[in-house]
Design a protein around this nucleic acid. Structure first.
Lengths: 349, 349
DNA sequence: TTGAAAGCGCTAACAA
DNA sequence: TTGTTAGCGCTTTCAA
């Protein structure tokens, strides 16, 4: 009654030969007699032999595993990214080890350390909103373990990065609102420690200024509970209580945008006649939200694919002792306008 | 210029002692002089020593990694489950290796094999819709690697299972529609190879019969492109073209339900006055869909937590040579009614 | 064509 | 209190 998987030795013993011979037979070495080879293959089959990758890793000093760390999985954008990563890894016979930080810097540190301990061949990470110290990633750099930052990145680290064009996307979104005739556009954003929030906020300000509109502090809201449905609700409630409530809201994330939309309606205003809402989103379901919500499309799956491909290349280079130089790739965003013609006309007035 | 992580030997050499001593010093063994212990700790710190888990795994014959296989990640339900799994694993210092099958039996077989090869300590899997042969999972059973099936399960395997109460949930949903006065309720489902689809379909039929309503084949649609937005759209279009179109639709998944809802509206009918729609969903955004869509709530995160806890227990038991007996846990569903009072009244007439 | 032996990094039984 | 040794499963050099 054997309960552990068969090893080379099991095969060797059955045939009265050495493990070395078995190993060679299994790997199609030239100097091996057809007879023993056949015998080995048969016994291997019978015993359901499978090479123990752990032993292999110990020898080869690589695990064929990549680590992935995201703020949260239950999020259309990140789950799309993960999906892309897994598809690429799968094709290249890599496995993916996944962690979520829940936007906690503590967990981020702990998990990157765990992954490093696990000897992953590379790391794909999107930083948590609160992360301002990067020593946990510097350890990777020092040990020459390739790292690719995606979406939420930082300038302090000389590693590869994949981002979407946050600035251009946000700029477009705000200009779109202004073109509709909106004059007081509010902003719903997250912590400015996050690169995406910084860029989108900057674009918001620049777009307003370009069109001669004032940048008003009371219109720039940091959502307290994260840029979530609830965060959007609360921030919007505050906005609407202002003496001069805005006539448009730009949210850096879809959930907050939907919250804004619901709250505006709940407070008895018409959307989008009284208040228009635009959000960042790669969420196919955005088309389902009523009234139709325009959004800046972020290609999540594509980001996963691009990031993973970049990482695997670097791992390969690294393994061949070729130098790896960090590079940054920026994916394009696209403004998706989903407003009924009636809406547009009323806005054009 | 060292680029590989420090090993026990590196420390031992620096101090002119043996690796065994170093190992013991690092593990707080009783019989070790405070002096050497201190010295070892210092050098370890200086060299940034980290135990190589691969070597540990090789010795201990366990990897502290669990494998997770889901049909798809970009899906509110499954990403919630994964999130729960990861939180539990994290607390118990386990890592999660994640694969998605994209509902392909081929990929499921390949990935479970990969995971088995990787010597995961246990497997959590939700079967793909097309899976009808279970030999790939029998291999786990034969090797005594604990397996927990969740959501999409099968009867053929004597392993633990975690499911939601599909039957009760579906029954409630259909009864809810009937109580509203609906007399011709259609069904949108996926392939019957999947356990969830079978149970929900059975409940649909039983609920109709209980209330003396006919079970009509032309109302039972199998969505072609999966139970997706598009699948729901198409199936609903066919339904609405029937000589006697239904006055209600029950969909086994949220995406299909939303598709149904959109298509009904596109065809010029009122929702829910002319056609009511109810779907299975654990999707918080369901509240956002207009007109409000009632749904059967499926606790995804909870399912992840429960499944992972069950698996970790079995791994522990297994490791202590205690017998593990398969068990099944059923999580409750809950009907969430999100219909305006106006709607209810019109339905009550 | 095959065997013997060393080594990847670590732990544990046994000796000293 | 510390060293010696063997072994986890596998590959590979050297020898036969």
């Amino acid at each position: 009654m054997k309960n552990s998987p068969a090893t080379l030795r099991d095969i060797a013993q059955q045939l009265g030969i050495t493990v070395a011979t078995v190993s060679r037979a299994l790997k199609d070495y030239p100097d091996i007699s057809p007879a023993t080879k056949k015998a080995v293959l048969e016994v291997a089959e019978k015993l359901r032999y499978r090479p123990n990758p752990i032993a292999l890793h110990l020898r080869n000093n690589r695990s064929r595993v990549i680590g992935v760390v995201v703020p949260e999985i239950v999020h259309y954008f990140f789950s799309s990214v993960i999906s892309g990563i897994i598809d690429v890894a799968d094709r290249a016979e890599y496995s993916v080890m996944l962690f979520q930080t829940n936007e906690s810097y503590q967990r981020e540190v702990r998990e990157t350390a765990l992954l490093l301990n696990s000897r992953v061949d590379g790391l794909l990470i999107s930083l948590s909103d609160g992360t301002e110290n990067f020593d946990h990633l510097r350890e990777y750099v020092e040990l020459n373990v390739p790292v690719v930052l995606f979406d939420k990145v930082c300038d302090e680290l000389a590693v590869s990065k994949v981002i979407v064009d946050d600035y251009a996307g946000a700029f477009q979104a705000v200009e779109h609102l202004i073109a509709q005739g909106r004059r007081s556009v509010a902003l719903l954003r997250g912590p400015l420690a996050s690169s995406t929030n910084r860029l989108r906020t900057a674009a918001y300000c620049d777009a307003l200024q370009k069109h001669g509109l004032p940048v008003r502090q009371e219109y720039m809201m940091e959502c307290d509970k994260g840029v979530s449905l609830e965060g959007g609700n609360r921030a919007t409630e505050q906005l609407m209580r202002l003496p001069n409530p805005p006539d448009a809201i730009f949210a850096v994330a879809d959930a907050a945008a939907i919250g804004a939309l619901n709250t505006v309606k709940r407070l008895g205003k018409r959307v989008p006649e009284d208040v228009a809402v635009v959000g960042f989103s790669d969420w196919e379901m955005a088309s389902v939200v009523q009234p139709p919500m325009s959004s800046v499309y972020q290609p999540g799956y594509e980001m996963g694919v691009v990031s993973a491909e970049m990482l695997l290349e670097q791992i390969e280079a690294q393994h061949n002792n070729q130098p790896v130089q960090p590079m940054t790739k920026t994916l394009e965003t696209r403004l998706i306008v989903r407003e009924s013609s009636a809406v547009k006309q009323s806005a054009m007035v």
